[in-house]
């Protein structure tokens, strides 16, 4: 069972701000999803290889050769705010 508390917690982890009326709807959505997962869990998959990746790829590696990086101007062109060559962000204390 998903509680309103769970919904608020998951939203907080994902930095999603919910309006009060959204909590109840999302709680029901999440419960539906979990019920579906529960159904999948009933299948016997003991003989099935786990899908680690959607593509049948393995060992995609690259040689350790340097490539040009962006310039500081290019990198900072996407910054909302910048200062002294750095991205300026609101102070966050962990």
């Amino acid at each position: 069972m998903i509680t309103d508390q769970d919904v608020r917690y998951v939203a907080a982890l994902s930095r999603i701000h919910l309006r009060e009326e959204e909590v109840d709807r999302l709680r029901k959505n999440l419960e539906d999803i979990l019920r579906y997962i529960e159904k999948l869990n009933q299948l016997d998959v003991s003989a099935v290889e786990p899908t680690n990746h959607v593509l049948p790829l393995k060992n995609v590696l690259r040689p350790d050769d340097a490539r040009p990086s962006l310039t500081q101007e290019e990198a900072l062109s996407i910054a909302v705010e910048k200062s002294q060559g750095a991205f300026k962000v609101p102070k966050v204390i962990e």
Binding site: L70, G85, A86
Partner: peptide, 15 residues
């Protein structure tokens, strides 16, 4: 492929 280097000006080793 960004160079793994230290002591550079900030944000000059990014992609």
């Amino acid at each position: 492929g960004c160079a793994n280097q230290f002591g550079e000006s900030p944000n000059t080793r990014t992609c």
